Amino acid sequence: MDSTPHGAAVTAAGFGLKGPRGWAFRNIDFTAGPGSLIAVQGPSGSGRTCLLLALTGRMKSAAGTAEVGGLPLPKKKAAVRSVTALAHVPGVAELDPALTVGEHLRERALLQGRFGGSLRALLRPRQERRAAARALVDTALTAAGLDLETLPKGIRTSVRDLERLEALRLSVALALIGGPRLLAVDDTDLKLSDDERAAAWKMLHGLAVAGTTVLAVCSEPPEGDEDVVLVRTGSRPEATSPEGAPGTPTATPDVPATTDTTDSKGTTGSKDGEAGKGSQGGPSGPEGTGGADGTPADAPATDAHDDEEGAADALAETGRA
């Protein structure tokens, strides 16, 4: 792969997303340069996936500012979607267990050739188009570390027969076929063994080194990797306003915000957004998948049970609830 960084720089300041029942996440602050590996860490239900979808232009933010490759959000959501790709996002970008690996690859290459290229490319002879498609697929598979020869039935292996790490690699490869500047991966380490988790992070780190900015949702970030930009989501207590109005959050002195150090690329980690608060917001489904943008809410609740309910509500129309 080309080692020249072509990834998108990502910045966020006071970034937040709110829906009918409150905040999905808020006060997210970080800066990451092109070709960074960004790890979004937090417990399930803390707004991690909502943050991933908002930063890729699939959900509309409600507070703060963010930019991807110089494109401001939410004003340029469509443009951001054109330079980003999703992988392994349940209900939004997931594999069909009824299809084979080869069918997935052919379908994605066909869509890329039909809608992702220029008019000049469409007018090339069929043989040239096929050769270009094969090259795209081979490059993506190599970058994702998926060797078709090691699969039980090679390219004819059904998705349902893939191991979890193999399925993750395939999902990443499919996303890479479009040549995104930012690759967003959900549930990176879900139900992986320690060795599989290490292999997954090695793959994503390699993509970042090769120039693609990677945004990966995880339960635990990779250990001992100083180049990772860490963004944490999680719940913090609500407080009432001086006037006693419920649902007006203030800083809690005995719960400090989490701020990460600057990495070797000069990028800055995140200060914990107050994601997953109260009855977290339920924006509708992600942009480009039939969902509408979220709308503001009134007083969020404050107990832990409502934290989880709010996160489920925020993703209800993505098929994850």
Rank of each mutant, 00 (worst) to 15 (best):
1 M>H: 12
2 D>A: 11
4 T>C: 02
5 P>T: 00
7 G>P: 00
9 A>I: 01
13 A>G: 10
20 P>E: 13
22 G>R: 02
23 W>C: 04
29 D>G: 07
35 G>V: 03
36 S>V: 02
38 I>Q: 03
44 S>R: 07
55 L>V: 13
64 G>L: 02
65 T>W: 09
67 E>R: 15
67 E>G: 05
70 G>I: 09
70 G>Q: 04
74 P>H: 05
76 K>D: 11
77 K>I: 10
81 R>M: 12
81 R>S: 08
85 A>I: 04
85 A>V: 04
88 H>P: 00
90 P>I: 09
94 E>I: 01
99 L>M: 07
100 T>M: 04
101 V>W: 02
101 V>M: 06
102 G>L: 05
105 L>Y: 01
107 E>Y: 13
108 R>S: 04
108 R>H: 00
110 L>R: 14
110 L>Y: 09
116 G>F: 12
118 S>Q: 07
118 S>L: 09
121 A>E: 12
127 Q>A: 15
144 A>D: 10
147 D>S: 14
148 L>Y: 01
154 G>V: 08
155 I>F: 00
157 T>Y: 00
168 L>K: 06
168 L>Y: 02
170 L>M: 05
173 A>I: 07
174 L>I: 06
178 G>S: 15
181 R>H: 08
183 L>R: 03
187 D>T: 04
187 D>P: 00
189 D>H: 07
192 L>F: 08
200 A>E: 06
201 W>I: 00
204 L>K: 08
204 L>I: 05
209 V>D: 12
210 A>Y: 02
213 T>P: 00
214 V>S: 06
215 L>R: 03
223 E>R: 13
225 D>N: 12
229 V>H: 03
229 V>E: 06
236 R>V: 14
239 A>P: 03
239 A>T: 15
243 E>R: 14
244 G>P: 13
245 A>C: 05
251 A>P: 09
252 T>A: 15
260 D>E: 14
261 T>L: 07
265 K>L: 12
266 G>T: 07
267 T>M: 10
268 T>E: 10
269 G>N: 10
270 S>A: 13
276 G>K: 10
277 K>D: 08
278 G>F: 00
283 P>I: 09
285 G>I: 08
285 G>F: 06
290 G>L: 13
296 P>A: 03
297 A>S: 15
302 T>F: 10
302 T>K: 12
305 H>R: 13
307 D>G: 07
310 G>W: 04
313 D>Y: 00
319 G>Q: 04
